[in-house]
Nucleic acid binder design. Structure first.
Length: 195
DNA sequence: CAGTCGATGTACT
DNA sequence: GTACATCGACTGG
């Protein structure tokens, strides 16, 4: 017992609670035999009870992974050119996930990631859901990927103090836009938009 | 600055 | 056919 598998138990809670809880945790992308770490600084919750969620009307071919086991990656393609990625949360059979909206690089950023962003660096590398997918080369090839295994791992870190967490409404949706299910780290420069 | 808008493929009605 | 969990280029003030 012990270790990573147990740490994923925090993903069992309600999507909004988990979304807030995941701030400060890390995503590690393995590339060229090196692990590049990123801190999760902005998230949104998508629950089966929520009209904005891909899981709202039940399982479809696209949303299937949302109904699978927690700790896997749900990746979808949108607007004809972008990918967004989520961490599946909650019980297997229940469709819920946490969208990763922004990451902060912890290690020095390799050129490969910058090149994929057309040379953009700094905050523009990962301050948006499609931007971070492009930088980490996350496509639907990773849909359903287990985040306890490389090349993409989730490492749960201790919860942040509530005072550091800002709660806001979600971005880019119409239905469900009143729900306070967006969370980000106060004053973090990598957050996509301040409320 | 802020606001608008086109790009471009897929899922679903 | 319509909408889309976005981005970046472009407009006008």
């Amino acid at each position: 017992m012990g270790g990573l598998q147990d740490s994923f138990s925090v993903l069992d809670g309600a999507a909004d609670l988990v979304a807030a809880r995941l701030l400060g945790s890390e995503i590690i992308k393995s590339e060229n035999q090196t692990g590049y770490r990123f801190k999760i600084v902005e998230t949104e919750a998508y629950d089966a009870s929520d009209v904005a969620s891909h899981s709202y009307k039940g399982q479809t071919p696209r949303s299937k992974v949302m109904f699978g086991p927690k700790g896997h990656l749900y990746v979808y393609f949108t607007y004809g050119m972008h990918y967004c990625c989520n961490i599946v949360v909650g019980k297997t059979g229940y469709g819920a996930a946490v969208l990763l909206r922004a990451l902060e690089p912890i290690d020095e950023v390799p050129d490969a990631l910058i090149n994929r962003r057309h040379g953009r660096s700094g905050i523009e590398l990962t301050n948006g859901p499609a931007k971070l997918c492009q930088a980490l080369d996350i496509t639907t090839a990773y849909n359903g990927h287990n985040l306890s295994e490389p090349p993409l791992k989730l490492v749960i870190k201790p919860a942040l103090a509530a005072i550091q967490i800002v709660t806001a409404t979600r971005i880019g949706i119409s239905l469900g836009s009143d729900l306070p299910w967006r969370f980000y780290i106060q004053d973090n420069p990598y957050v996509s938009r301040q409320a």
